Amino acid sequence: MLLNGDIISTLSVLYVEDSKTTRESMSILLRNKFKTVFVASDGEEGLFLCKKNRNDINIIITDVNMPKLSGIEMVRELRKIDINVPVIFTSAYTDSDLLLGVMELGITDYLVKPFSIPNLFIRIEHIFEEIHYQHLALRQEKELYQYLELLNKVAIVSKTDTKGKILFVNDIFCEVSGYKKGELLGKSHNIVRHPDMGKDIYENLWQTILSGNIWKGKVKNRTKNGDAYHVNATILPIYDENEKIIGFIGIRFLITEDEDDKLEFRKKVAKHIKFSKENEITLLDEIRELKEQINKQNIIIDNLKNSSNF
């Protein structure tokens, strides 16, 4: 979405006004600014146009008091069918009960006649700037949720409070550590700490994350039955709306300390197996040829015996 003065030129508006003079003059001004302008003379016509063009109308500017169907009644009907575009009410009155009814419908703005046309456009720009940033925040939140969902499927994830008490662990955490969730929740995270890990490493970790920074490093942990496992860990602070640290989230990926050695060993084993199989095939071929030669020799010997007996 474009920002500032470019917003209005991309929008379509429904303008509802029962005064012919006001409606005609305002329509000219609106058409000079908006992409498309739908004009209605009362709430009933406005309701019809909005239903007909519900996918095209971005904002509604409507008078409150009108014949056939008031602006409030029109918007109430629109809300019933989930048409929730922003609405700006205009009225010559500032009755408190009227304003209360308007607020209950979730109206975006309210202007008292006569109002400044430039002020109207400024308010519309602000409305759509706010909508733009709300959509942006929702998209970022959705992307973050999808990212966390992906991590939850491939990584060892846990969440703690500021004292290190476990508040959440995912299934992979339980699978690797050998603990059930009930055995972990509420416990200190050092339940999986391996005694080989020095205190200085954890002192550095806590100092880093309590300062609001991200800690990364290799960690040796211990399973429930005492086996060791190694992880590449990333620990991030979690903040509340006041930018206060309220906990930490840990994201870890399994590694092996001697992964390179194991990889070389596996290569050597595979090469040896391949060499052995090749030798086995060669040996079997040689045995097969030898058997064929022996059979041929036996046939010749049998023929010679038969000839001499004859």
Rank of each mutant, 00 (worst) to 15 (best):
K33G: 00
L3N: 07
E17P: 06
L100Q: 14
N295E: 15
M103Q: 11
R252Q: 12
W215I: 00
G250Y: 07
I300H: 03
E278M: 11
A270V: 01
W206F: 05
Y133L: 10
Q207H: 11
C174D: 01
V13M: 04
Y110R: 04
R23M: 06
I249Y: 08
E278P: 02
E143L: 12
A137T: 13
L111G: 03
I28T: 10
T62A: 06
H230R: 06
D240R: 04
N32R: 14
G198P: 08
I122S: 12
L78W: 08
I107L: 05
I172Y: 09
E289M: 09
G106H: 05
T162Y: 01
K262Y: 14
I28Y: 13
R79S: 07
Q297I: 08
C50L: 13
K165W: 01
V39M: 05
N213Y: 10
L98P: 01
R288G: 09
K142Y: 11
I287S: 08
R79T: 07
K291A: 09
K216G: 06
A155Y: 03
S177L: 03
V112W: 01
H135N: 15
D63V: 02
I57P: 01
E280K: 10
K224D: 06
Q297K: 12
R288V: 05
T10S: 12
I301D: 11
I301N: 11
I83P: 05
G212N: 06
Q207P: 00
L138Y: 10
Y133D: 03
E129D: 09
T22Q: 15
S307T: 13
I209E: 06
Q146T: 12
G164R: 01
N309R: 13
R123S: 00
D171H: 11
